[in-house]
Design a protein around this nucleic acid. Structure first.
Lengths: 137, 137
DNA sequence: GGGACATTTGCAACATTATTGCAAATTTCC
DNA sequence: GGAAATTTGCAATAATGTTGCAAATGTCCC
């Protein structure tokens, strides 16, 4: 059985065409995907609404998480290993390349410690680094 | 002459009602503002388009900058002191409170050093921390 | 202060993106 | 294989963002 099916079953999700296809896109992509990317890649095979709902379901189950962006897009990326469903408390470093505009999830980069002012409690930290990626240098 | 007018003149912008009002909102807000917040605060005094264009102008001039968010909203916050117009290479730490949902720009928090993989060049770093703020604890 | 010129605003129309309800189709489970 | 639960697609609607252009406002100089 494929890893793909494992993920869906483990999260008690019905195995449907759209979910398989969209999950496959994430598994084959090193970067992050936006709704628009998915619609383009699936070439209209699935309704816009289905894509929205699939992404939402994946986020709720902790299969993917979303990445902060400075424009008004929403980027999604696979959660590696064991994200808690609905309670994603991991820390991430994301890199956005100014040249190719791709967003890459840097799993292996250690998150730095942020010292907050008194009274603030830290739960999740997202770091968004922009610059030039290895491929574009 | 107010600080407000200074800012506008320094950036060679015509002093108009909407710009004064919107800039004032930022000066009086410790947190970040979204387009919707501004429309609500101005109570429809200005056209939706005017607000969009004003924000865009302020960003271009380096008066405000936008903050990464995980939803599809765009948040703006004042740039303290001297941001380069159009080339905002500063680093920021932003805090989003899970309780009151406010975004606070933590100017005085030092940005941590992020070690990137080989081949990556770092230009700007944004850190988004979520948790509970001092007021909500 | 008045008038010419430049800038900005508001309206209208349009484009894009996201959400909801509901019936039809698909999946799951026994 | 068939009933029950889940998911999909359509249609309608809402929310958000953009563009062109004429009218209004602001700036500058005399």
């Amino acid at each position: 059985m494929e890893a793909l099916l494992n993920i869906l079953k483990k999260n008690q999700l019905s195995v449907t065409e759209s979910r398989k296809k969209i999950l496959e896109l994430f598994l084959n992509s090193e970067g992050a995907l936006a709704h628009a990317d998915i619609e383009k890649s699936t070439d209209g095979s699935y309704d816009r609404v289905t894509v929205y709902r699939t992404l939402q379901t994946f986020v709720e189950k902790g299969i993917i998480h979303n990445i902060p962006t400075t424009d008004n897009s929403i980027l999604y990326a696979l959660c590696k290993d064991n994200c808690e469903a609905g309670h994603h408390h991991d820390n991430h470093v994301h890199f956005i390349c100014d040249v190719c505009d791709k967003t890459i999830c840097l799993e292996h980069v250690s998150i730095p410690e942020v010292k907050l002012p008194k009274g603030f409690t830290q739960k999740q930290t997202d770091v968004v680094v922009s610059g030039i990626c290895d491929a574009c240098k």
